[in-house]
Amino acid sequence: MSRLMRTSEVTKRPVVTLGGNDVAQIKDVVYSAGGGAVDGFTLAGRGLFSGPLNQALPWASVMALGPDAVMILNEDVLEPTATVLDPSASSGGSGGDVLGSQVLTASGTELGTVVDVILEISDAGGGQCDVVGYEVEASEALGTKGTKVFIPLPDTLAVSSDHLMVPESATDFVAHDLAGFGAAVQAFRQHLQGPR
């Protein structure tokens, strides 16, 4: 069993220890440079006037990313932000913000602009948290200009702060709502693996 959620839904979510204390809230999601997985989260303090924290939450320490809270064992699992951010900065990608990037197919057609990132969280404890797709504001190429659609991603992809490269076939698996998107991702990944 796994669940799909938008990154924008995850941010602001409280980080709660098993002791029932809210120690922080999610500020942003740290992706591994390949763009395929979530490395962890940067954190902000709880409350109206608290700023960003200098501690971050590595994905390995997340017990559960639930619909209402992110559960961790205790406060000690938080690590200095630099140690969570470093590996993703150094592993080849350009880092940077993926929101606002242009989505280009391998043949050079622009599909639209990234407005949100879709995560898939497997329910098993310590499960993977993968980036499975992007919510994209569509351009003419998709025939539904101006609407928001979901584009599935292969396991690995090239991404920079300007562009996001997707295979040509991704256009066949565009979904118009999040509910139908899970099946589209499965179908798309099977399609990619098929010919090999």
Partner: peptide, 17 residues
Amino acid sequence: KDHHPIGKRVLTTAGED
């Protein structure tokens, strides 16, 4: 107050309210 249960939200370990 921190340990008083009445009125407190209930969260599962899966993060569900």
